[in-house]
Amino acid sequence: MSVPAAQVRRPARWRAALTHKSLVIGGGVVLLIAIAAILAPVLTPFDPAQPDIANRLKSPFWMADTVPGHYLGTDQLGRDYLTRLLYGARISLVIGLVAVAISATIGITLGLVAGYFGGKVDAVIGFVITTRLSMPLVLIALAVVAIAGGSLTTVTLVIGLLIWDQFAVVTRTATQQARSADYVRAAEAMGCSLPHILAREILPNIMPAVIVVATVELANAILLEAALSFLGLGVQAPLPSWGLMLSEGKNFMFFDPWLITLPGLCLVTLTMAINLMGDGLRDALRSGRR
């Protein structure tokens, strides 16, 4: 029964995860965008909010009428478009991550409590979830922005406080299954406290499902931010949000279509990469379990 030390080590799950193509591709693209966003001040010499009226609406490098240095051209105020896209990635990612963190905290807590206790507690939380699902996001955002005014913080809070429903629903279902597991009953028999049982016994075991929801909601939050900013309810000018850039560029779309193609492309690439990563993670986590 002696065990060699090497065998005692946890198997290299990350190496196994690398065999999942969608995880590698999606994760790679997300990582690339994240690095570009973080390094934005290093990668470009321009200020994303600095207008340059002399060089308005210059084309990207593959077209005529370009200006050296402005690889992806300039917008209607002469601001470097590549710079604005890079800084826009920061806004998208920060709002997405913070909003998902807020909604995950709310949703997981509600789901754990509802799933573990069941009965009346479950009925009450189920009602709260249904209430949330019956409220249209954009309408709420409109009302909140009308009262509080649009800003980065407001948008993040509005999105974070509204998209926890999937977390709650998935956590609740997974908890209902996990609570009857023998190790949960064993933990109860060991006299473990309720927070210990929820946080140490149940949560780690339902984490795969929660992680997949988190990726879906991250893409969702980024799209929502873009939509709200496009409608003028989100991030306010001159901050370079992709949604806001789409909105500003739409007046010029017939003559300078890249103004909306480029931010649109960024948005599609990022959300698709995140979803791809989520799919890959789901497969990797599923095959990782025995």
């Binding site: 023998d182 190790y183 009953r185 064993a186 028999a189 060991m190 016994e201 075991n205 984490m207 379990r289």
Partner: peptide, 14 residues
Amino acid sequence: GMIFQEPMTALNPV
């Protein structure tokens, strides 16, 4: 102390 029937599932897998 309590010992359960199913040792395969009575320990937390993670």
